[in-house]
Every structure is written in structure tokens, then in C-alpha cells.
Design a binder for these strands. Structure first.
Lengths: 138, 138
DNA sequence: AAGTTAATGCACTTCCATTGCACTATAATT
DNA sequence: AATTATAGTGCAATGGAAGTGCATTAACTT
């Protein structure tokens, strides 16, 4: 059993051929990708399958979904220390308005947010929009 | 000329009957509303008109659009000191997963975010999801 | 190998966002 | 006041992404 299949098994996801390939594809990316992007990479596979594959990954904590404000859900593999389900350990995301790519700034943690009385936080989503390093030319 | 029409004129928006009514409606809300909500309040008006009215408001800085992670755009009137276009003066939004309402926490400013070299921030969107004061029963 | 369960593919639906075009109202000009 | 120009509104239709139901196929279990 290879690396990827072991990772999937660890997360209680049966390593089918499709899932291994999707994982591989996600691992190649350095940005968060939309379902459409994955679809384009697997023209022979059905969109629904990819959709459900990613959803399974998400439920099992293999990827996290990112809402970057474009209205299109993006997905990225959780890093080793991602813990995206644990509050206060959330990292922020950056969406480049030039190249339209979304990256996880894993090392940039979201600061503690104070809320008015009676408000209970369960999840925090912080997206910075602007120009990424690739596009700013620096 | 009444209050609302003056405000619209100040922002270079011609105060039509429709626009005045939509503004009025938005002013009544204490939460950010979806286009569908506005539509329900104006059953005789066309969805497109409302859509474009809100878009116009947005362009002219009368309302700001909120992406609360539900996938449905919400809109709220800009407060007197809103300045939603100026960075570092951005407030955060709270989306209640129980009542599904989104509120602007105007007094809660978003802290300064540090970014890696080469990244230029233009806009910041911070949404906290959880239970609002109305639903938490406190 | 038979049977059970999970995964996949196809077709279809829904929902919101958005656009094109015709019509109407408002403002500007003569 | 009539005419023209411009902006706003309504209707119809499109598009894109998310999601569901069901039949088929593949993968595990015994």
C-alpha cells in the first residue's frame, strides 16, 4: 500500500482508484482549487463522483473547504498540523484578485476575536483579498 | 425632498420611488438581508429591478455586500462611519447558524493582518459563525 | 462464489446570479 | 409644451454551481 492510500485509510476513507488520483491531484496544487478545476483534470470521470469524493474528504478531515468570497467553494488538503476543525487554530486565506487563485497562509493564525455578550463563536473565516506575491512582481 | 432621497442624491443615486422604498426597507432591518428577502417585501416589483437597485447602492457606497459563507449574498446599509471601502476600518460579520441571520458587528474592527512578503491586501472579509445573542438565550 | 455494502456514473433538479431587450418614466433641451 | 436623450424598470431567458435519486458497478466480507 502506497503513501496516499495509507493516509486515506488512516482517515477512514477507502482508497479507491478515483480517490487516490484526486488526492494526488490535490497534493500537486499549491493553491486551493474549485471543483471545476478538479473536473478539468479528470475529464473522464463524472462530476458527481468528484463532488462526492471531495465531500468525503472534507467530512473525514482530509481537505478543508474554503470560502474565498468568489462564491465558488475551493478545497485544499489539510496540512499535517492543520486541525482546521479546532477553533483558534484557524489559518487565513488569501485570494488574489489578479490571478484569481486562493492560497492557504497556514502559518498565519487568526487572532482571537472578541464578540458581544451572548454571541458564541463556532467557526471563523478570514479571507484577505488583494495581489499575491506572484502577481505583485516582487 | 425627504431624508432618504437626500442621502441617495448625496451618493449620486437618483431617488426613484423604487430606490427610496428599498432604502427604507433596508433601514428597517437590523440584520443583513438577501436579495430574496427584499423580493419578498416587494412582491409587486421585479426581482431584476431589486437586484440592480441593490447593485447600484453597492457601487455608490450606500450598502455593502456581505459574504457570510452561506453562498447567498447579503446586503446591509453602510453605517454613517462605515467606510467599508477603506482598509483597516472594516468591521466583522456574524452569521448565526441557528436563525440563519447575519449581523454587522460594526463596533468590532478587524485587527491588522500581517502578510508574507509580496502580498498586498486590498480587502479583508471576516465572518464569525456561531450562535447569536437572540438564539443563545442570554 | 454469494451476498452485502460502498462507490461511481447518468440524468435531472434547484437555486441564485446575471444579462438582453423592450418598454416606461424621468430629466434635459429646444 | 413638445422633443430628445438618458436612466430605470419589467419580462424572459441564460448560466453556473450545488445537490439528489436511482441504476450500475466495484470492492470488501464470510
Amino acid at each position: 500500500m502506497n503513501e496516499i492510500d495509507k493516509k486515506l485509510t488512516d482517515k477512514e476513507v477507502r482508497p479507491t482508484a478515483m480517490r487516490t488520483l484526486v488526492y494526488q491531484q490535490l497534493a500537486k496544487q499549491n493553491t486551493a482549487v474549485a471543483l471545476t478545476d478538479i473536473e478539468l483534470a479528470f475529464t473522464k470521470a463524472d462530476r458527481t463522483t468528484l463532488y462526492r469524493t471531495v465531500k468525503t474528504f472534507e467530512e473525514k478531515g482530509i481537505v478543508h473547504q474554503i470560502d474565498d468570497g468568489t462564491g465558488i467553494s475551493k478545497y485544499a488538503l489539510c496540512e499535517p498540523g492543520c486541525n482546521c476543525e479546532i477553533e483558534n487554530d484557524l489559518h487565513l486565506h488569501f485570494h488574489c484578485s489578479n490571478c484569481d487563485k486562493t492560497v492557504c497562509l497556514t502559518e498565519h493564525k487568526i487572532p482571537q476575536i472578541s464578540l458581544p455578550d451572548g454571541y458564541v463563536a463556532e467557526d471563523v473565516n478570514l479571507v484577505v483579498k488583494g495581489i499575491c506575491s506572484g502577481c505583485s512582481g516582487s
